[in-house]
Simulated scan of single mutants.
Amino acid sequence: MQETPFCLSVGHLLPFTMSDSNSTDFINPSTFILLGIPGLEAAHIWISIPFCTMYAITIFGNFTILFMVKTETSLHVPMYYFLCMLAIIDLVVSTSILPKMLSIFWFNSREINFSACLTQMYFILSFSVIESGILVAMAFDRYVAICDPLRHSTTLTNPVVAKIGLAMVLRGIMLILPHPFLARRWPYCRTNIIPNTYCEHMAVVKLACADISVSSYYSLSEAFFVTTLDVFFIAVSYTQILRAIFRLPTKDTRLKTFGTCGSHLCVILVSYIPALFSFLTNRFGHNVAQHLHILMANVYLLLPPMLNPIIYGARNQQIRVRLLQPFTHKWT
């Protein structure tokens, strides 16, 4: 170990000690180094197989949803418009991390440009917030369709659906916008090595040799605000939906009505539970191994985009019939 030069850090000099192999003397790095999954380097090729399979299913499944909704006029209703928005978001989030991850696993290409790193971080965070908002919009659509069906077509018109989608996009863009600007203004003089497969927000800002409490507190408050608010509205919507279902006269009607929103409930669980688990383990699971943290951080971003089209395809009769139509015609 040898002591490196002093580093300028927000109005005072901060000495630090680090080995030559992972430290440099700079304020604004031109590149970061993504390590992949530290501790599992020997298994990178094997880990890439399920991740690559998940990505292939994500691409095929979500493009299939988009194609079917575009070509089938009976699916031109608010629920499927929101589903298309969800499919686009899933494609963007998974594409934001998978190509670089696979280049690390396959070609040991670990460098990522500083601006590209912040861009990747912004896309992941903003589209995750947008996705949460779209899930709220889908819950509202199911609420109107089941609790006030006669007003569904007049309440959720195409312009209203477009405005809701635009509002969710703007919310995600504006809430996350401070993150890359704050990350860019910090001085980085400890190391440019990120022990992850992608530029996760806190993994990046923790490299700064400055007081990052602003970024940390804003990240926590934004996550708490978005998650609490969105989960609250979803819970209220489905409480009213369940009350309406239990008031229906016959068991068959209740089961049929519940089946119309069952797929959406599954998507909500798939979207929130892995994210919540990853967030809690990152914040409070100090005894959990680092490679498990990183694996969970990847899974919670890759699993919902893969499962969402499968859930809707398997549980939704209209999509299932439309998807199987070419095969049924072939054998009849």
Results as ranks from 00 to 15, higher is better:
235 A>K: 01
163 K>W: 14
37 I>E: 05
220 L>E: 10
6 F>N: 13
50 P>F: 02
175 L>Y: 11
246 F>P: 01
110 R>D: 00
199 C>Q: 05
25 D>G: 03
193 I>R: 08
220 L>W: 13
164 I>P: 00
161 V>G: 01
313 G>M: 00
84 C>T: 14
218 Y>C: 07
295 L>F: 06
66 L>D: 08
208 A>I: 07
184 R>V: 04
257 T>F: 02
286 H>T: 04
307 L>V: 12
218 Y>V: 00
205 V>S: 05
98 L>M: 15
193 I>H: 08
48 S>F: 10
188 Y>A: 00
295 L>Q: 06
168 M>Y: 09
21 S>M: 07
137 A>W: 02
76 H>S: 03
224 F>Q: 12
17 T>I: 02
58 T>N: 11
238 Y>S: 04
101 M>Q: 15
284 F>H: 10
62 N>Q: 14
66 L>H: 07
35 L>A: 10
313 G>R: 05
121 M>V: 02
301 L>N: 08
73 T>S: 13
263 S>Q: 09
167 A>M: 09
20 D>S: 14
27 I>L: 09
252 D>C: 11
130 I>C: 08
266 C>F: 12
224 F>N: 09
117 C>T: 09
80 Y>A: 00
141 D>P: 03
175 L>T: 07
282 N>S: 12
272 Y>W: 10
72 E>M: 02
204 V>C: 03
148 D>L: 09
9 S>F: 03
90 D>P: 01
247 R>L: 09
181 F>S: 07
269 L>W: 03
69 V>A: 09
135 L>Y: 04
259 G>P: 01
239 T>N: 04
263 S>G: 15
297 A>Y: 11
311 I>R: 04
269 L>N: 07
18 M>N: 12
227 T>S: 12
247 R>Y: 10
328 T>R: 15
159 P>R: 01
177 L>F: 10
123 F>P: 06
180 P>H: 01
244 A>H: 14
3 E>Y: 04
